[in-house]
Amino acid sequence: MKDVSLNLSEQRQRKRSITVLTVLGILIVIVFIISMNTGYIRLSPKILVQTLFGMGTEKQSLILFEFRLPRIVISLLIGAGLAISGCVMQGISRNALADPGILGINAGAGLMVMLFISFYPSTAAAPVYLLPVLALVGAGLTATLIYTLAYKRHHGISPTRLLLTGIAVAAGISAATIVLTLRLSPDKYQFVATWMAGSIWGTSWKFVLALLPWILILVPFVILKARALNVLSLGDHLAKGLGASVEKERLILLAAAVGLAASCVAVSGGIGFVGLIGPHLGRRLVGPKHQMLLPVSALTGALLVITADTLGRWILQPSEIPTGIVVAVIGAPYFLYLLAKAKS
């Protein structure tokens, strides 16, 4: 009887997960369509369909294919990448508040990108493909520093110590970034200030091509490591008892999470809270098993970022609000709610 009830429970959970994935997919498609028609120049549904099939004017094709579609695709990739990065960090640290933004990974990646932009024109073609690599270097050094400071021999990684160390390192890097901006010319300072606010500045297909390989390689890799994440979430002692190579798996997954966060930050700026909200909402919808939690987190993060970007372009037309600010308006109260819940 127990086996039958377990099978029924698993079937119900699987059906629920498929339903959640389907609903999230439909919502993303709806927001995708709305986003294509959001901007200073409106495209009616009829014109939108005509332009998609190559029957629009040259101006309409330029607006849709060269300005809006690359930005929409990048929003989806960034949301999925940051959400999975946050999900992995929460799993390996057993810390519900872990997030690449809160832990300082985004700040480290951003500092390296800002240093590069300060000395080279941001519009140059070749450096676009180097930005994710440079961001990875900055994020990797930051992650190494945080991991080293938070790790204690015989005790491993304490969730509280990891969070506090990450916040302290992020504050230090942010201060260094602000000091460095004082050396910039007015044009570059304006660009960096907008970038730090979380503006999706990479809005051409070359930025999509720069980001896409990182997402296509690292996201499936992390999903294949879902079983290892499940074991690590149980705690170091129990994971070792089950035969897992804890430190090796943790470092591999941490490297993948850092790579995802860094590549996304390279083209999105300082967008925070996506890696916090995506996994939390996913966990409420499908439970803690990472086989389904990772895909649901990815879709939730993608939906959050594309919605925030669409709202940012719509609220104050013809001006726009950086996507990071819109996400922060949603994420900051949610973060405070999680802190209050954690204390209780």
Rank of each mutant, 00 (worst) to 15 (best):
Leu64Asn: 01
Ser118Gln: 09
Leu182His: 09
Pro159Gln: 13
Ala332His: 08
Ser204Ala: 11
Leu234Gly: 00
Val169Ile: 15
Asp99Ile: 04
Ala298Val: 02
Leu294Ile: 15
Pro220Arg: 04
Ile271Phe: 01
Phe67Cys: 05
His155Asn: 14
Ile217Thr: 09
Ala171His: 03
Val267Pro: 06
Ala262Arg: 05
Ser158Val: 04
Ala96Ser: 12
Thr51Cys: 03
Arg250Gln: 02
Ala125Cys: 05
Leu149Lys: 14
Leu224Phe: 06
Asp236Ala: 01
Tyr334Met: 14
Cys264Glu: 07
Met112Ala: 15
Ser204Phe: 06
Ala239Arg: 05
Pro279Gly: 02
Gly140Glu: 08
Phe67Arg: 15
Ile321Ala: 12
Val258Leu: 05
Arg250Phe: 00
Pro127Lys: 09
Ala332Lys: 11
Ala257Glu: 02
Gly270Thr: 10
Leu182Cys: 06
Leu21Cys: 05
Gln291His: 13
Ile26Gln: 08
Lys59Asn: 13
Asp3Phe: 12
Ser174Cys: 09
Leu285Pro: 00
Arg161His: 10
Ser174Asn: 15
Thr194Tyr: 02
Ala261Gly: 00
Thr38Tyr: 05
Thr177Arg: 13
Gly86Val: 07
Tyr129Glu: 11
Leu180Cys: 07
Met114Ala: 15
Ile315Met: 14
Leu136Ala: 15
Ser233Met: 03
Ile117Gly: 01
